[in-house]
Nucleic acid binder design. Structure first.
Length: 272
DNA sequence: AAGATCGCCTGCAGGC
DNA sequence: TGCCTGCAGGCGATCT
């Protein structure tokens, strides 16, 4: 599932191919993509406009148009972009250099939203907290966000207003790196654990970006290649396998309805 | 009011 | 072989 590293990889591969290109055709094939806005209305708004920049905010991909409009794409679970025709295409962009860019989304959770320039920042700021790789994601910030929260620390970490772009995979990977049990009440972490967690989130995301994301089944980069991060997984999806640090069998549980993997020895419940 | 649960979607794995 | 069930999970809506 596309999280920050996957979306950043997509952004970095799309940017050189899209920047400065005009959209000569915009075909939206699934009304769910732009719901509740009519798909023809969205297509008409974009058609003829030129892409000024391709940016990312949290898990959002942001196509800034020269007109001042912006297209906000959220890939949710299975959204992806590609230059080769494929199955499950939900939208197709035609560029003025002849490029055909398809948006693929098997499970149809992804969304496309067109906003005016002035609406973009307030919208994104309402959904997203600081970029975890940016200067605002400090230990003090994380301490403040975890305090008073009795929910499992993993549930809080998945809140996009706490750390924009962290999803299920990188949350588990970060908690393992920080040696923090995902079920610990967020408010129970001591300052050193929070400091480790901040570092671990950043390290896990950086590794994910370096490896161009993780490919489990659907995710591909726009150039069509698989990510390599799945080879780096320390805990995600590894129940029954030995912990890469201590050899203890990785356990699986559920937190907030999501599959959650951890090492019972490296990430004990109760003490850090 | 924070926290838990549900619904949206589709493909695939596993059981019989 | 083919049907059925469960599972994957981001996020908004809904309930407690």
């Amino acid at each position: 599932m596309p999280e920050l590293p996957e979306v950043e990889t997509i952004r970095s591969q799309l940017a050189p191919r899209l920047t400065g290109r005009a959209l000569v055709s915009v075909e939206i094939l699934d009304p769910r993509l732009t719901r509740p806005i009519d798909l023809f209305e969205v297509a008409e708004e974009l058609e003829g406009d030129t892409i000024a920049a391709v940016e990312r905010r949290g898990k959002y991909l942001v196509l800034r148009m020269e007109s001042g409009l912006a297209l906000l794409v959220h890939l949710r679970m299975t959204g992806s972009f590609g230059f080769e025709p494929t199955s499950h295409e939900r939208a197709v962009l035609g560029l003025d250099d002849g490029t055909r860019l398809a948006y693929r989304d098997v499970r149809r959770f992804g969304t496309w939203l067109v906003l005016e320039n002035t609406e973009v920042e307030p919208y994104l700021a309402g959904k997203n907290g600081p970029e975890p790789l940016g200067p605002r994601f400090t230990t003090d910030w994380l301490v403040a966000r975890l305090s008073g929260r009795r929910a499992p620390v993993k549930a809080v970490l998945l809140d996009q207003r706490v750390a924009a772009g962290v999803g299920n995979i990188y949350a588990d990977e970060a908690l393992w790196r920080a040696r923090v049990n995902p079920l610990m009440p967020a408010e129970s972490l001591d300052p050193d654990e929070v400091r480790r967690l901040r570092r671990a989130v950043r390290a896990a995301l950086r590794t994910g970006i370096e490896r161009q994301g993780s490919t489990l089944s659907d995710y591909r980069t726009p150039e069509g290649s698989r990510g390599g991060m799945q080879e780096e997984f320390k805990v995600y999806g590894r129940d029954g396998l030995p912990c890469r640090h201590c050899g203890t069998t990785i356990a699986k549980t559920r937190v907030g309805g999501r599959g959650t993997w951890y090492c019972p020895r490296c990430q004990p419940h109760g003490a850090g």
